[in-house]
């Protein structure tokens, strides 16, 4: 067995093992860390396929950005356990089966296409960043500008989603408006000094 194939098998096995770890871990943090290792093994795969730029993107965007966001979500959720019986998972197995079949069909199709049509290797001059820069800004100018628009939409969407209903501390102007309302109604606002007293009052 040649070295590249042995290497591929080792990295592939690690990739599958970490993917299983992601779905089988009880702790969400462990899942996120398994996902991180999985992304890194994918990057190694990309390097071995001579797509160095994609490998760098995989590490910088996925391992460096997406996993951080997932960790943020875990931290935001806090420690409250979600009762398992309250999650409606009746559709989950059907969805999983459907997606799995789709995945299998895609894999089968790409294998078949390789054997039937003798696909040309479509590496982009070694997948080097230089070649990608040349191609992106000569042949795919329209696509790259649309990517810019897409990123702008994502940015504004993130802004709108994250700042939807305000739950944080109120600003001075809002407190003032509330006071005036209360004055007009002839009532007084009960003084609360922080969130814990609010929660205690709610209980």
């Amino acid at each position: 067995m040649s070295w590249p194939i042995l290497f591929f098998i080792l990295v592939g096995a690690l990739s599958i093992a970490t993917a299983v770890g992601v779905v089988s871990s009880r702790q969400p943090i462990h899942s996120a860390l398994f996902l991180l290792v999985n992304f890194i093994t994918l990057a190694i795969m990309y390097v071995s396929l001579e797509a160095q730029f994609l490998a760098a993107v995989q590490v910088i965007i996925y391992a460096g950005g997406i996993v951080i966001l997932i960790l943020f979500v875990i931290m935001l959720m806090g420690s409250e356990d979600v009762p398992v019986d309250r999650i409606d998972s009746s559709w989950a197995s059907i969805a999983a089966l459907g997606l799995g079949m789709l995945m299998a069909a895609t894999l089968l199709y790409s294998f078949m296409a390789d054997f039937l049509f003798q696909a040309e290797p479509n590496t982009l001059a070694g997948g080097a960043p230089y070649a990608i820069g040349m191609t992106l800004f000569t042949r795919y100018i329209l696509a790259i500008e649309m990517v810019a628009i897409l990123l702008l939409v994502a940015l504004i969407g993130a802004l709108l989603l994250a700042r939807g209903p305000r739950t944080g501390p109120k600003t001075g102007a809002e407190l003032h408006a509330e006071e005036e309302e209360a004055d007009a109604a002839g009532t007084t606002i009960p003084y609360v000094d922080d969130e814990t007293t609010v929660m205690a009052a709610a209980e």
Partner: peptide, 9 residues
Amino acid sequence: YLIGLIFLI
């Protein structure tokens, strides 16, 4: 999370 999203973009 918002800062994280902006960073990612």
